[in-house]
Design a protein around this nucleic acid. Structure first.
Lengths: 232, 232
DNA sequence: GACATTAGTCGCGGATTGTGAATAATTCGC
DNA sequence: GCGAATTATTCACAATCCGCGACTAATGTC
């Protein structure tokens, strides 16, 4: 407990900690939520695959580092990038003391000039370093919990999409089927999408209209409290 | 982008970053959500008040540090402690590069042996260092968003409490009034509390029964998607 | 043209919920 | 002791929400 007693302005003295920034990149791929992994570069790594990561240097903001890591692994910027949190105390490929994790969303499972990477279904991952395993689980949990507060599903789709595609993303994230009519009724009531004048004919069946994400401001309805998420 | 190319096992080489752990301690105090601040110890600090914090050393887990910081500021352990995230790029009293923030909950605004601290209403805070201001806002936002997923309101109350007290905590966090009958109907339907055989008479009026937090496992009802939190 | 397939909508019945009012149990003033 | 005031708890009704099956619509296949 001495830290608080020592003069806080002394930026020398203590050696500092080793910090890495890790990114969990997610994209829907053939009806599975998939994660981008890269081959371990250290010759004697205990695990063969890793999340993309970089060591943090002084004077760089964390989200800038995360953007750079994502861009390097993808060849492009993700559609959405958000912090998951800080992780410590478990082994990490960098042997850093602390890792700050981000998750990023893409509509397509693309890989840029990086050949040592692969998109792997989230529930079929190989062994990762323990801290990176924690990071993946926390990122998936946060994505699923925050999909009601942030437009996460829309960033897993291209700019225009059919309502069936949107429902499939929700089913992917929730892990269960949804009823079509109820889904659309709630969606239209929320004024989140607007139709384009384009239609997509996907082989057989009636063509589907394409929509875009265009949330309209509306007065928030004062609903009561929901205790449902607090089940023991 | 060289970090990824250098051998990851070299824990020397780079100097490491200065890391602090900050804690936002929250308690309901006279119908206000209040935060524990401590007087700045550095003689030439730009702001007179700070969140409790400590510098991180190598080999210590982040949540252990957070527990220690909270215990030192309070004289006891908080009822609940959870990470908010990592913050960088703005001035911090420690002049650290990165701060990992936690929030902690208490039923009562207690202070231990620490005389240089004060509980201050959350919407009446003095100026803090910019990064600590961000931390406070993020912590309050997270508490309000997560109160549906985690038993946050219950940790802002003593082990037994009246339903009116519980509703007042919810109103404090939501910033609006709730209808009594609806609140209780939803609460009992969720099987989160169980009555004790004690009653509290608080001066005038009918005595209120005391309840305790005792969530019962129940099958989760498969409800549809809620788009309400996605309003533009 | 019959059929399979996918998109989109309708409407019923039951569950949920906002709301005011009724009832219950206590203290205070006189 | 007794009525008014105060706080706790519940009831009941109306409106809304929501799960669900069935229906219509538009296309490709044979």
């Amino acid at each position: 407990m001495r830290e608080r007693s020592s003069p806080p302005s002394s930026r020398s003295g203590t050696a500092g900690v080793a910090l890495s920034v890790d990114v969990v990149l997610l994209a829907p791929l053939q009806r599975q939520l998939s994660i981008l992994l890269v081959r371990a570069r250290a010759p004697r790594a205990r695990e063969r695959w890793e999340l993309p990561w970089a060591s943090a240097q002084r004077g760089q903001a964390l989200d800038q580092i995360a953007h750079r890591v994502a861009a390097q692994a993808l060849g492009r910027a993700p559609a959405w990038l958000e912090q998951v949190g800080a992780f410590s105390a478990k082994r990490h490929p960098s042997e850093s003391d602390v890792s700050v994790a981000f998750y990023g969303l893409l509509a397509e499972a693309v890989t840029g000039a990086e050949p040592r990477s692969a998109w792997i279904p989230a529930d079929d991952l190989p062994a990762l370093a323990p801290r990176q395993g924690d990071i993946v689980r926390a990122a998936l949990r946060q994505v699923r919990e925050r999909m009601d507060q942030a437009p996460i599903a829309f960033h897993l789709l291209p700019p225009t999409f059919t309502l069936t595609q949107l429902q499939e993303v929700y089913e992917l994230l929730l892990g269960r089927r949804l009823h079509k009519a109820s889904f659309r009724r709630a969606l239209h009531a929320a004024w989140l999408v607007e139709p384009t004048d384009e239609w997509r004919s996907e082989g057989r069946g009636r063509p589907a209209q394409l929509f875009r994400y265009a949330p309209r401001k509306r007065r928030s309805v004062h609903r009561g409290v929901r205790f449902e998420g607090l089940a023991g």
